[in-house]
Design a protein around this nucleic acid. Structure first.
Lengths: 235, 235
DNA sequence: CGTGGGCTTGATAGTCCTCAAGTCGGGTGG
DNA sequence: CCACCCGACTTGAGGACTATCAAGCCCACG
């Protein structure tokens, strides 16, 4: 007897809830509330909410960001299928950032009490959640490093590689035709650049035969050189 | 009967281990190994270590950073007395960044098994650790936002305010004479600027009567304007 | 078929970097 | 106690990278 929710979990939750014990699984199932579906570019979690909203993405991408000044924002991380939204908020009690859908998105809403329950009664699950938070922090630190130390080419190469690898880790992905649903402005907001300059930089990467972004897909033409751009290049 | 370790903890651990239950306290005491003392500018944790090293700082400051290219690095966070070093590494099993002392430093080394034990047997302590990791991630996200969206003045104002507030939260600090042991190069590496430009920007803040950094101390002359620089300023 | 949003591209300007030389201060060894 | 020395700081000139602004284009959508 499988619920719809558990089938979904089997297929998509490779990063967080895979291979759980029976108690953990039943706890999660008890606290999984409902499934939500949103179009692209919708607010999932608003900054400053006293969020009881915890989601696990089943289909589609989203991104976390903070508003800066008037019209500018900083994208902190992209969220892929299988990943959690709002775990940090559930732990700290407040959300300091917003989350918005990048593509049409489906997600399972989970009762935020899962977190408290996990720490109280399911140590293995709690540890998993802790590691998830640490891994997320890891990614933000990596992005900060690139924004702080790299020029436009290096930052963009990093973003491409990073998103490609995260997808590849979950299953086979064609490097010549990987999903890459970011618009120019998303890349700009993630990397601390402008849309216009992103465009120029993409042109250069295309002309150099390194990578092409087209039609919301990424085609990596020269993985070694792309990797070299991220690892070696100074400014 | 108080051990040296527990006295230290009473006075300095306001962010992490304060007001613990008896079981938690005894667990920590069991796993607190020894005290270490280091001069300034020494490596505490090296990148790539399979770190069993978990510390709690008792005196002095340190900072986490990642090496970028050849000679450049990105400082991710500063670590103040009472805070933990190496918790992320203890959770994930690998360290992706280095930690270096900023001032002469004393710290208590804690057996990294504390983390596992906490999750297994002390849920309240585990939750506290989880929150600590989330708060640390929070700070990195905030720094990324400033580096991504702000000009030099805004970034520097943010850094001053952020470090001042973290100290003020732990006890009363004179805004006109707050500890600020960063060299130009540390500010540069944290904010994605160069030492030379940090210097010019500090000059402007001093000439505008907003803040002065001198002799490793920070003197905030106009807190409202300093705050406004961080919150309002666009470009 | 009109419209709007995203993309593209050019010209111009600004912020910040690079490089380099000179100053200052503190620590060390004689 | 003093001379020396090294690292940190300071300041200037020139240049690189990226932002800004603006206009035209293309496509998807209503």
């Amino acid at each position: 007897m499988f619920s719809v929710a558990s089938e979904r979990r089997d297929r998509y939750t490779q990063g967080v809830f895979n291979s759980l014990s029976g108690g953990e699984t039943s706890l999660i199932e008890t606290l999984t509330l409902r499934s939500v579906a949103l179009p692209a570019n919708r607010l999932l979690v608003g900054e400053g909410e006293v969020g009881n909203s915890l989601y696990q993405i089943t289909h589609g991408w989203a991104y976390r960001y903070r508003n800066c000044a008037d019209a500018s924002r900083q994208i902190l991380d992209f969220l892929l299928p299988g990943e959690l939204v709002g775990l940090g908020a559930a732990l700290l009690g407040v959300t300091d950032h917003s989350v918005r859908t990048l593509t049409p998105l489906r997600a399972g809403a989970i009762d935020a009490r899962l977190v408290g329950e996990a720490f109280r009664a399911e140590p293995a699950l709690a540890l998993r959640l802790g590691r998830y938070v640490a891994a997320e922090a890891e990614r933000v630190a990596e992005l900060l490093t690139m924004v702080g130390c790299g020029d436009a080419v290096k930052r963009l190469a990093f973003l491409m590689l990073s998103l490609y690898r995260r997808q590849a880790r979950q299953g086979h992905i064609d490097p010549l035709n990987a999903p890459f649903p970011l618009r120019r402005q998303h890349m700009a907001d993630a990397l601390g650049l402008t849309g216009a300059h992103i465009n120029r930089t993409l042109n250069r990467l295309r002309q150099d035969g390194i990578a092409i972004v087209e039609n919301r897909r990424l085609s990596i033409r020269d993985l070694p050189r792309l990797t070299a751009l991220v690892e070696i290049t100074a400014t």
